[in-house]
């Protein structure tokens, strides 16, 4: 494995400092929201996690199609790496959502359409990794996982629209609210700008994680290939 390139370190520090800066801004420089009070600060973790989950699984969607088209394992490695990070961020969405729901709604969990479809996304991608682990052949694994990856990501538009299509406990979208056809987020700029900053910082952190994870994945495939080509002495392989 080659030495860590310098821009990796730059990205690493950039992401960490951006996250730290956002934390300071949110807790020291952002006003308290009127109706929810201090607990509304969870939004600065919850919403960027949602956006990053969407981003990570969108990358899975694109690279899975690219794999099925070109049959190049490079795309499958990106898809696998991104799906793993997406699953972590999806877990964060569910947990921060629960911690937010208890003080505001009065419950950690309800089976409304928004929460149920989000849990479904989480379970689909848990299944995605079970599927990967259960197929020994590398190319077959990539093929099956790509198909499941593409289908699984189709849950995201359903999650996004769930608050409009069904009656839910979860409130409708604040950021994508429109007024007379034009986008008009229902949030004053003092709350909105730190939120955008948090999203950017989280996306940067995702980019860093994806690059690192992808390198590990490439190394892993190299080792597996080496083992397959050089069976240890005395083995039956």
């Amino acid at each position: 494995m080659p030495e860590t390139p310098r821009y990796f370190r730059a990205l690493e520090w950039g992401a960490l400092l951006a996250l730290l800066g956002c934390g300071l801004w949110v807790f020291l420089g952002t006003p308290v929201e009127s109706s929810q009070g201090f607990v509304q600060k969870i939004m600065y973790l919850h919403v960027p996690s949602v956006i990053t989950t969407y981003l990570a699984f969108f990358v899975v969607f694109v690279t899975s199609i690219a794999y099925l088209w070109k049959r190049d394992l490079k795309f499958d490695r990106i898809a696998k790496s991104s799906a793993e990070i997406g699953l972590v961020f999806c877990t964060m969405v569910l947990t921060t959502g629960m911690f937010w729901g208890k003080p505001t709604w009065g419950t950690y969990w309800v089976w409304d359409a928004r929460l149920t479809t989000t849990l479904l996304l989480f379970l689909i991608f848990v299944g995605y990794f079970v599927l990967r682990m259960s197929v020994p052949d590398r190319d077959k694994e990539a093929r099956l996982a790509s198909v499941l990856g593409v289908i699984g990501v189709l849950d995201i538009p359903i999650i996004h629209k769930s608050v409009e299509w069904w009656r839910t406990l979860h409130q409708p979208s604040t950021l994508f609210k429109t007024e007379a056809g034009a986008a008009k987020p229902s949030m004053p700029p003092e709350l909105l700008y730190p939120l955008f900053a948090c999203m950017l910082a989280m996306a940067l952190f995702y980019g860093y994680l994806l690059l690192m994870r992808y390198r590990v994945e490439c190394g892993d495939d190299t080792i597996q290939e080496h083992i397959a080509n050089h069976p240890p002495e005395g083995s039956r392989a």
């Binding site: 509304q40 709604w105 009065g106 419950t107 409130q171 409708p172 604040t174 229902s186 949030m187």
Partner: peptide, 17 residues
């Protein structure tokens, strides 16, 4: 069980400072 919905509108009290 009593669950409280909250609106998607976020506001800041101008007096907060």
């Amino acid at each position: 069980q009593l669950l409280v919905k909250h609106s998607e509108d976020y506001t800041v009290d101008p007096e907060h400072q």
